[in-house]
Design a protein around this nucleic acid. Structure first.
Length: 547
DNA sequence: GTAGGGTTAG
């Protein structure tokens, strides 16, 4: 198939009968490129691309469009772009294909950039309605409400607002940008409401914690003939589960069964997710067992949701069991599962298991790298953590984010690498445009503080553009106590107390600081305050006496 | 081209 002579084929194009054959051949290739794109089979796709050039089949515009999609799908954006620019007549279809693929594969910024270029070419017309949902999806993911609203304006101008796909995408965009009222307005304005748009608006409410409103909406729509499907019920379960409203979760399970719809693996995974996010690990594990009892097979999503519930030494046994389970059901190689496993082993103190798994991974993302770097840094292997950070940067395949720098700065401060830490703090802002967050400032205070450079540490606090929190002042206090700076210790402890006035722990800390400085009068004063606080607390419970 | 569950955080 790949050995056809190009001259022969070019000749065929001029012949009517053969041209038809040639076209069907092209369609078969177009389908094959689609399969390679779906599977991310870059190598095979490239070979096919070469073949298409030599045979001349490349001249079919839809083949070229599919190749662009293929490269974008495989993450080769610049390659996709080169092809796009090479083709002399850029048409609407090709723009739609490129934008759609970028949006589908997670290259949201790129999708938006290409769309604005498309707008500049005046190529937007009544056919370009198909591009609107993709662009709105990109806006939803990056939280770009301003562009989303502009597109809404365009939708109204072009009378695209009758289209169900467009409306659903608008609802999602407003929901993700936390404008649930706007989302509802779009839904209310729809002449004919479909289930997808209902689910979109229900999801918008549920994700913002308005689960009861979401349920009422479903109920009211039922009266208008829109019957909820399993997606609707799962959205509601997810909303109530995140709030750990177990009564409502079980109510929805009953309603589903009444409706003749059986809860599926997504329903159960949502419940597990709710427990894990609320640190109710035991209940998460029990729910998992219950799910297995219903003969439902977990997916990679279920496993990666559950694994963080085992990320403490006490639950290591469960973690290993789930790891074994993931192997049996064939999801252990999933990048989310692997990253969660790396993190779990590292947190449980089994750093060598974490490392073995990490190096076995053919593809690693930001979370994978961050997990292993944190793992090393938190277990005192700071040099290894810094080494891995460098490796991540050199390899350049995963994007460094604010957590990568938190992990690296933690390693620097534990290892006493002041200069490197300072350099990374600058690199983070200048090269990666990541604004320092509180945790980064806490790391910097810790970095100087541990090395006894208390004045530098305090200088960071005084000049930082955001309000320091408990961890920042806590780092300064620890440094002051370790290096005997009673004066600044008092300042730090006072701030801690101001941030958490109810905490008797902070009061005790302050009294220790005074004791260190020999200010015994002040120590007594604090002790009295603590006693008074206790007294007040018991007074608040005086109704006990009346029982 | 639109709707449901996923991994890292001092």
């Amino acid at each position: 198939m790949h050995t056809k002579n190009s001259t022969c084929i070019k000749n065929l194009v001029t012949n009517g009968t053969s041209y038809r054959w040639f076209r069907s051949e092209a369609s078969a290739y177009a389908e094959l490129i689609g399969i390679y794109a779906r599977d991310g089979a870059l190598h095979q796709g490239k070979k096919l691309h070469a073949h298409l050039i030599t045979t001349g089949l490349y001249r079919f515009t839809h083949i070229a469009t599919n190749l662009i999609t293929f490269y974008a799908c495989c993450g080769q954006l610049s390659h996709a772009r080169k092809l796009f620019d090479k083709i002399p007549q850029t048409n609407v279809h090709r723009y739609i294909a490129l934008i759609g693929t970028c949006a589908r594969c997670g290259f949201y910024d790129h999708a938006l950039a290409v769309f604005s270029e498309m707008q500049a070419t005046q190529m937007l017309n009544t056919h370009s309605i198909f591009v609107i949902p993709s662009v709105l999806k990109a806006c939803s993911h990056v939280g770009d409400r301003v562009t989303g609203e502009k597109i809404h304006g365009l939708v109204l101008k072009c009378s695209f607002d009758v289209d169900a796909f467009v409306n659903s995408a608008l609802i999602v965009m407003y929901s993700k940008c936390e404008r649930v009222e706007e989302a509802c307005k779009v839904f209310d304005g729809m002449p004919v409401k479909d289930l997808v748009s209902l689910n979109a608006v229900v999801s918008g409410c549920a994700q913002l914690g308005l689960s009861n409103e979401a349920l009422s909406l479903v109920r009211s729509m039922e009266l208008h003939g829109l019957k909820p499907n399993i997606v609707t019920w799962n959205i509601l379960i997810s909303g109530f589960a995140q709030k750990c409203d177990l009564a409502m979760v079980s109510e929805i399970f009953s309603l589903m069964v009444e409706d003749g719809i059986e809860p599926d693996v997504v329903s159960w995974t949502s419940v597990i997710s709710g427990f894990v996010h609320n640190f109710r690990n035991e209940e998460a594990l029990n729910t998992f067992k219950q799910m297995l009892g219903h003969m439902l097979c977990p997916t990679s999503n279920t496993i990666s949701t559950l694994l963080p519930a085992c990320a403490t030494a006490a639950r290591m046994r469960h973690g290993k069991e789930i790891h074994g389970y993931a192997l049996v059901i064939g999801v252990e190689e999933d990048i989310y599962v692997r990253s969660a496993l790396v993190d779990m082993y590292a947190k449980c103190g089994f750093i060598s298991e974490a490392r073995t798994l990490f190096y076995k991974m053919p593809e690693k993302n930001t979370v994978t790298w961050n997990s292993i770097i944190f793992g090393y840094a938190n277990h005192g292997y700071c040099e290894e953590a810094i080494e891995l950070f460098n490796q991540m940067e050199v390899e350049g395949r995963a994007k460094l984010d604010h957590l990568t720098f938190t992990a690296a700065l933690t390693a620097c401060s534990h290892a006493g690498e002041i200069e490197l830490g300072q350099r990374l703090f600058e690199v983070m802002q200048e090269k990666y445009s990541i604004e320092p967050r509180l945790e980064h400032y806490a790391c910097m205070v810790d970095l100087f503080g541990r090395a006894g450079k208390i004045d530098e540490a305090y200088c960071i606090i005084k000049t930082m553009p955001i309000e320091p929190d408990l961890f920042v002042w806590g780092a300064l206090l620890a440094a002051c106590r370790n290096h005997g700076n009673a004066e600044l210790a008092e300042v730090a402890a006072q701030h801690l107390l101001k941030l958490e006035p109810e905490s008797s722990g902070n009061r005790l800390l302050l009294s220790s600081v005074y004791a260190d400085a020999g200010k015994w009068g002040k120590v007594e004063g604090i002790k009295k305050t603590i006693k008074k606080g206790r007294h007040r607390k018991f007074q608040g419970l005086s109704w006990i006496d009346n029982i």
